[in-house]
Design a protein around this nucleic acid. Structure first.
Lengths: 220, 220
DNA sequence: ACACAAATAATTGTATACAATATAAGTGAT
DNA sequence: ATCACTTATATTGTATACAATTATTTGTGT
């Protein structure tokens, strides 16, 4: 893999896994010395992350991890609610016992990570489940979009999520696998929609950080 | 607008309007002297265009306008067929007489461009119709994706399109406006799906350029 | 101690220089 | 004339230097 790509992956990973929280600054020279390359390579990576909405770059002020607005947060989840259930039909068409095994392994990974309390691994595994499922639908253009939406969701959860957002207690991904095994695409589709709506509902959109705090009222 | 952004827009416009055909090389030197900036700024723009699949960059070989594979071509259209009809519900909800007027103007532009034989303007107007409609649905994340898909469609048509692809003779966009005016979202949705399927069907996917020519067979 | 102004430091924007790589041209042998 | 091989040219990859801008600190006066 190209060097740029590795740096990109590492920074993205740090953002998605909530190591770099929304709002964190990303100065070019710190990153360049951390990765042992010149600012040129870092800038390239930051530009890309900005296009994909993981960081925001303000002119002459540099990059920081994006803190999605409430509007953006809802739109990302709504997009997934619209698209991912639609892909289930294609997934069911390509479903096989090998796929079933593959995804059971992924669910296992999720469980292990959650039990070990490894939130980073848990986030990664959960996102992977969704976008690898999307890939199965057979349209790589849509799958790439869903992959981005999954990662953006991780950022949204970093900003507005609760514990139940990351490891949603609305039930397990294995329920979906059961429905696919039983060849019930309608119910699988409904499950996916419900699942994503639960995640959306778990967001707390009245973030204290963003809204202005009126100390006058607070201490009067 | 930032200078980078202007350069980006100009190159993208040239690609989308078929001034720069698929496969055309984009050497950094030529572009930098053409736009009067250093290669640094050009590289930034090319990287972005590559991420958005309008150009492909091969290491140490530089950038050229993407020549979408048949697979990519179909997937782009299929994505639109899946998503754009779904957005009609939201469009109908936000539909008003002002919107109706606005889009009638756009259709007028399309007609003028086509009558004048100005293919570039025709392509732009047609794409604008689709993605401004998508914006009306109220989800800017999805709208941005649809916008990209519209532009990618222009590139697909440059590679595989016929005359009927660009100014599709399957009827006018004004038919859709009528259905929205009459508050018939179901039929509007069906119309949109059919419309996009017609465009997909107009593609000619057996391009002589791509497929390997067997001279042995040809001249034996 | 506070507000305001000036100077300094830190950071990004852009251009350029040099190295690495790929393409093209040239040379000579068969 | 064609092929292999070498040399030259063109193009991209990466680092660095300097300019422009912003942020922070320092100093001064009230």
């Amino acid at each position: 893999m190209a060097n740029d790509e590795k740096i990109y992956q590492k920074i993205l990973k740090a953002i998605v896994e909530h190591q770099l929280p929304p709002g964190a600054r990303l100065p070019e020279d710190r990153l360049s010395e951390a990765f042992g390359v010149s600012r040129t390579g870092i800038r390239k990576v930051l530009q890309r992350l900005a296009l994909e909405h993981f960081v925001v770059i303000a002119r002459n002020k540099g990059a920081q991890v994006n803190h999605p607005s409430e509007e953006e947060a809802l739109e990302v989840l709504d997009s997934r609610i619209l698209i991912e259930p639609l892909l289930i039909a294609g997934v069911q068409a390509n479903w096989s016992s090998e796929q079933s095994e593959r995804f059971k392994d992924l669910v296992e990974e999720e469980r292990d990570a959650e039990q070990a309390g490894d939130m980073a691994a848990s986030i990664q595994a959960t996102a992977r489940f969704h976008y690898e499922l999307a890939q199965l639908a057979g349209n790589s253009v849509l799958a790439a979009f869903v992959e981005q939406l999954c990662y953006r969701s991780s950022l949204v959860i970093a900003a507005y999520g609760t514990r139940s957002s990351v490891s949603c207690d609305c039930g397990d991904h294995s329920q979906l696998l059961d429905l696919l095994d039983k060849q019930q695409p309608q119910q699988a589709q409904a499950w996916m929609k419900h699942h994503l709506q639960e995640i959306k509902a778990s967001l707390v959109l009245t973030s204290q950080e963003e809204q202005h705090i009126d100390f006058q009222r607070l201490f009067s």
